[in-house]
Design a binder for these strands. Structure first.
Lengths: 293, 293
DNA sequence: GCCAATTCATGCATATCCGTATAACAGATC
DNA sequence: GATCTGTTATACGGATATGCATGAATTGGC
């Protein structure tokens, strides 16, 4: 190993990486939890020791020079390795106390997760939890969360996935709404109802069609990509919409519209291979698996 | 990008890498040009922030824990990326002054390189040169030198190679020696002579056999892997040995034994693809190519 | 055209980290 | 078994980097 080649200040490389990716010294300082002068000095010092201008100072913003773009790929590789290192290290840590980030759909985050987290608090009060509520599929590879709750099986390698259980979705509406439009029974009844959907209307129409509900896109009068907002619309009596039984049971004013109609969907727990060996994350993972079964 | 994951002290990771690879804090401190307490503190701080013991302190030495071994691979990847980063950066540098490391066989280093370096000093006095004299093929991928002078074509990708020229080797001995054994003319004469070789006797025998010299391993009575030492033995009158014409012409007491026998060998100049764009290294590279033509 | 909001650069006090010196200790060697 | 070499761990003074406050400059909006 030639140590001279790697004998530069690695923290300066980190500052350069953050600056290049975030687009400014200020943004980089926020990302790394340092101050803007510090980042600025680190980047300047790196440029000085390397003898290359990494950024062109044009106006209030920095733009990468060609040299900066060329070397950025390597420091990105450094950052990726650093992330893997950090992940493997926390995976090796046998400290039970510490931080765990869980990502889940907003519905899961709002209605299913809180009681589980209450149990977790009783079991291991030292664990602090961040819930990253997001309906887009989180990229666990980038370590935005330690554990993900998904409804599709992940395809990425290096992730371990466990089918925690199966939940059933039903269609709900307020008694108020159903009294107004008449409790739907026939296909014609259904076709006259209003539906509350999420962001992917086509998928919802296809799903309901597959279960014998003759609706079209026209029926979806209200929608929100935010599951909690959509559920609030349903609770407001704006129409019929899907919800998991467990969450709907918490609300007295809604009624299951077609008791025979049950749409099963899987609950997958996903974690990094590296992280799965961590006592702390493993504990949360196992508790989630048990609670969601 | 999740910045929290890479928001640890990268220099501590570097200290850990050096310590793991060198085997001790002291050795790591020497490798990185820091002091042993500094490395010790950095490694300890890293263990502290990660919450994992990286080394077991047993007696006077450190041995990696299992956790340390697991995370080492990732920090090695970091180091490799750091080396590539450093290389790309110096390749991008347009500073003409600075450092250039050249590796070459000891013969080249001792007899061919010095006059070229004298020319270089006149052209670019700001360039400081390190000559890494070694007969083993240097690993340019690890950046032990910026430019290598080799006599075989390199096979590694990411290296650029230029056939600078062709040198001819002849067999030399002192007049003194030749007078003593009788100037060899027939095959029998040759078989009676002593030869001075390098480390790979079989290769030398095969090479001379291919040129019609009927010698065997028995003829090689003296040898040294150090080319300069072998040449000194030839100049001492111990036997016949090969030398490049350019180097032998500098010495008055030796005589070419078989003027008809010329063994051509190529001179390759090798540099990293990244480094070849550096003004400074390019200048040295081009001067070498011109001088060795 | 002016104002507001960001951005990067610069002084200065302070906190942090580093290097020197030293101690404590384990193996190797004679 | 004593000595010597090479290792890690521990004080302490000093160099270095960091953060805060401020200034200068540019962009965008009204």
């Amino acid at each position: 190993m030639n140590w001279q080649a790697i004998n530069f200040d690695w923290n300066q490389a980190r500052a350069f990486l953050a600056t290049a990716q975030e687009g400014s010294l200020s943004a980089a300082s926020r990302a790394l939890g340092l101050t803007q002068p510090t980042i600025g000095r680190q980047v300047a010092a790196l440029e000085d020791t390397l003898g290359v201008a990494l950024f062109d100072r044009v106006g209030r913003s920095l733009i990468l020079t060609e040299a900066g773009r060329d070397v950025l790929t390597h420091v990105q590789a450094m950052g990726d390795a650093a992330a893997r290192f950090s992940m493997a290290a926390t995976g090796q840590s046998d400290q039970i106390d510490g931080h765990v980030a869980i990502t889940a759909t907003d519905i899961m985050s709002a209605y299913h997760l809180p009681p589980i987290l209450k149990r977790l608090r009783d079991i291991a009060p030292g664990i602090e939890v961040t819930v990253v509520s997001s309906n887009s599929i989180q990229n666990l590879m980038r370590r935005e969360a330690d554990i993900a709750i998904r409804h599709t099986r992940p395809t990425e390698p290096d992730l371990i996935a466990k089918l925690a259980g199966e939940m059933t979705g039903h269609l709900y509406a307020t008694r108020d709404y159903l009294d107004r439009v008449g409790w739907p029974k026939t296909a014609d009844d259904i076709a006259r109802c209003d539906f509350v959907g999420f962001d992917d209307h086509d998928r919802m129409v296809a799903l309901l069609n597959a279960h014998g509900m003759p609706i079209t896109r026209k029926n979806i009068r209200y929608a929100s990509a935010d599951g909690v907002a959509a559920w609030a619309m349903i609770r407001q009596g704006l129409g019929i919409g899907p919800m998991s039984r467990a969450a709907a049971d918490l609300v007295p004013e809604v009624e299951m519209v077609f008791p025979d109609l049950a749409i099963p969907f899987p609950v997958w727990l996903v974690a990094h291979r590296e992280l799965h060996t961590s006592k702390r994350i493993r504990l949360v993972f196992d508790l989630l698996a048990e609670s969601l079964a």
